[in-house]
Amino acid sequence: MKNTQNDTSELDKDAAAKALASIQSTQQETIQHSRPPMWLSAITGLGYGAIVAGYGLMRHENQWALMMIIGGAVFALSVVIYLYRCHLLGIKPAILPRSNASKKLNIYSALFFAVIVVVSRELTLFTELNFIPWVCGLMCGGVLVWLQRMYPTGEVVNVERPNE
């Protein structure tokens, strides 16, 4: 009797493990399907990095303000291309997060970007070290690319790292 119970419990465990594996592989496939091409992620990251670096370096010269504006235009255009691509693929990314894990990720990333932008501007004004905005821009662009590669649909799911 005890053996039969053990067998049943093992069967349940096997079935549960298979179901979980099926969930993970399905979600990975969807994520891989919606992941933007590397060139588009790179353009988005560069555009955002240019906004942060341009804002940090901007004084009274127009050249950095121009870099910020061009960066903003490039960033906006790449986001539009990304959303249109998703639409063609049959995916509508979540703009407002639904799960708690996604909400947490959005809050942490928003805080990170806000802190870096302020630090980039204020630290450069105080120290006159002009490399700081470039470093901050690189960090923001890099994090944005990473977020876009890992969570292209805006929802947090357990996925393996992309094999780029």
Partner: peptide, 11 residues
């Protein structure tokens, strides 16, 4: 599982 990854998916 698929629908949990995004806001909406096409049939």
């Amino acid at each position: 599982a698929m629908l949990a990854t995004s806001a909406e998916l096409d049939f």
